[in-house]
């Protein structure tokens, strides 16, 4: 029973939504259900918050490695929750947008979250370089193809590419590196992306069908746990 009802719910909701696409009066059903999902997700925040606090408090209690930093997390969490839920310093009071300029919440976003977020993102510039060094090695045929394609495109994106190959006459201009880079983007790149995309869409379709039919059910966990 504990598994039958959820399987039925999945089947029912899934089938309903599939048919709603073909039936104009039911078209908005999908939108509403997506909104439902957002609302359920907000309830799940309680689970998330509870878990976060539990993990860090237990780290503190057990004096695990780096327990001192758990205090930072807990204070940061509590403070942000406090200024966000009570809209502290918000020029428009409770009715205003929570991210109104001047509110503490927004200041925290601008001066704490934003620099951290964009610096983490900017680390990618470094990692792109270290990955290129470490992994672009002609170990086998596949890796060599990968390496060559990346190199041609990289070269094509700098003035070097044009300078190296400007001597090639117009009747052979496809061999000028910038042109070659564009051509690769428009042919091989397009073909590869399309093949993956078609595969993915078929995979999603098949997977959805398995879920609706109740064939794929790992997400429900075991029979006895509960």
């Amino acid at each position: 029973m504990k598994r039958q009802i959820p399987l039925f719910i999945t089947f029912f909701v899934g089938t309903l939504l599939i048919f709603s696409v073909f039936i104009p009066p039911m078209e908005t059903l999908g939108e509403n259900f997506t909104l439902f999902f957002d609302i359920i997700a907000v309830f799940a925040f309680f689970l998330g918050a509870g878990n976060l606090v539990r993990v860090h408090v237990s780290k503190l209690r057990k004096r695990k490695a780096d327990w001192g930093f758990s205090i930072v997390t807990l204070i940061g969490f509590g403070f942000m929750l406090f200024v966000g839920l009570l809209k502290i310093g918000n020029p428009g009071g409770i009715a205003a947008d929570v991210t109104a300029p001047g509110s503490w919440f927004q200041e925290m976003f601008n001066y704490v979250i934003n620099p951290l977020q964009s610096t983490m993102y900017a680390l990618l510039a470094f990692f792109v370089a270290s990955a290129s060094y470490r992994a672009f090695r002609a170990k086998n045929r596949e890796a060599t193809i990968l390496l060559m394609a990346a190199f041609v495109i990289l070269l094509g994106r700098t003035p070097l590419g044009m300078m190296l190959t400007a001597w090639i006459p117009d009747s052979l201009s496809i061999f000028q590196i910038p042109n070659m880079a564009v051509w690769i983007m428009n042919s091989f790149n397009l073909a590869g992306q399309r093949a993956i995309l078609i595969g993915i869409s078929l995979g999603v379709v098949a997977m959805s069908l398995r879920l609706i039919l109740g064939v794929e059910r790992t997400y429900l966990g075991g029979d006895d746990s509960g």
Binding site: A125, V128, A129, S132, Y133, R134, F136, R137, A138, K139, L147, A150, F151, L154, L155, R157, T158, P159, L160
Partner: peptide, 19 residues
């Protein structure tokens, strides 16, 4: 952009030489 691209390409070359 150009300098960084050159550096990355140089490291690809260096990596392959090492390899």
């Amino acid at each position: 952009q150009t300098l960084a691209h050159v550096v990355i390409m140089a490291f690809i070359v260096i990596g392959n030489v090492v390899f």
